[in-house]
Design a protein around this nucleic acid. Structure first.
Length: 285
DNA sequence: AAGCATCGCAACCGCTCTGGC
DNA sequence: AGCCAGAGCGGTTGCGATGCT
């Protein structure tokens, strides 16, 4: 049977958008907001498919887009995020306010790849080129875990509205021993960090908060403490670490964020703390 | 100046995921 | 449970701009 096409291709324009089309789209979205892309072109008087309208808006016309060159700090952040997430451009874009997945993807392919190669680093594995073959398997495992974790958790809203940090590679990122049993000799985990960036995974229903002015690039976001009052008080963090998702055999989580992950109306923050050690990788099939 | 090669980015395509029925 | 529409994502393509011969 097959799916009906997203638009009536015979009667739609293709190729570059004209100024007039842009104006129509902007005017319509300003008046009516985003949503229902399929019906938007007709309503806005555009001979475009809804998908094309969405892309044009998200990648080019959105008022909060930051046009212009990427900074050195953005470069490094993209590299670090890519090392952890792989080609999950929308997730990476979620950490770069004003940048789109498409923009980052293009920038990666045209600039950063070359930059890494010049450094003697493989752009896919982020390992020294001569060590790529050896490390390839391990890196793929790490990326697979992270990607699966994200895909299980972050679907449903535009990445621009996601606030997340990167999951930890540290097995200690979240203790998965029982609350009831005193935890083993393992000391309380340090703030989860990896490659110099915050490794706590938080997805918020609230819009992404840009880094604070005084915050250094690559430094963990301080949203919970610094996004002051409103967000901090409203953001009930819900633990969604893997064992609560049933991926580690249902052990009880003792990360202190868990409890019953009741999705209260005030629960605007979801935290993912993932133990990504070798033992878990085998369970995540 | 013309022709060709390369680069960079906007846009498209095909697929997956999700939610509603 | 299965189907379908809508939305979103990542890979790829097309084409204008730029550089080189």
């Amino acid at each position: 049977m097959g799916r009906s096409p997203c638009c009536e291709k015979a009667h739609t324009n293709k190729g570059a958008w004209t100024k007039e089309e842009d104006q129509r789209l902007i005017a319509y979205i300003k008046a009516n907001g985003e949503g229902c892309w399929r019906s938007l072109p007709k309503a806005a008087g555009l001979l475009r498919c809804g998908k094309s309208c969405r892309l044009r808006w998200i990648n080019y016309l959105r008022p909060d887009l930051k046009r212009g060159n990427f900074t050195e700090e953005e470069d490094e952040l993209i590299i670090k995020l890519h090392e952890l997430l792989g080609n999950k451009w929308s997730l990476i874009a979620g950490r770069l306010p004003g940048r789109t997945d498409n923009e980052i993807k293009n920038y990666w392919n045209t600039h950063i790849k070359r930059k890494l190669l010049a450094r003697g680093v493989d752009p896919q594995t982020h390992r020294p080129l001569n060590a790529v073959a050896v490390a390839d398997h391990q890196q793929q495992l790490l990326q697979l875990q992270v990607q699966r974790h994200f895909s299980a958790a972050s679907t449903g809203h535009h990445p621009h509205h996601d606030h997340f940090a990167v999951p930890s590679n540290s097995p200690e990122a979240c203790s998965h021993s029982s609350d009831d049993e005193p935890s083993s000799a393992t000391p309380p985990p340090p703030p989860s960090r990896h490659l110099g960036i915050d490794l706590n995974l938080s997805i918020s229903l609230a819009p992404y908060q840009p880094q604070q002015e005084d915050q250094q690039p690559g430094e963990p976001l301080k949203q919970e403490e610094t996004a002051s009052g409103e967000l901090a008080s409203n953001a009930t963090t819900v633990c969604l670490c893997l064992n609560r998702l049933g991926l580690l055999g249902g052990e009880r989580c003792s990360c202190g964020r868990g409890g019953a992950p009741s999705m209260q109306a005030s629960s605007h923050m979801f935290r993912f703390i993932t133990p990504l050690d070798n033992s878990t990788s085998t369970t995540m099939t």
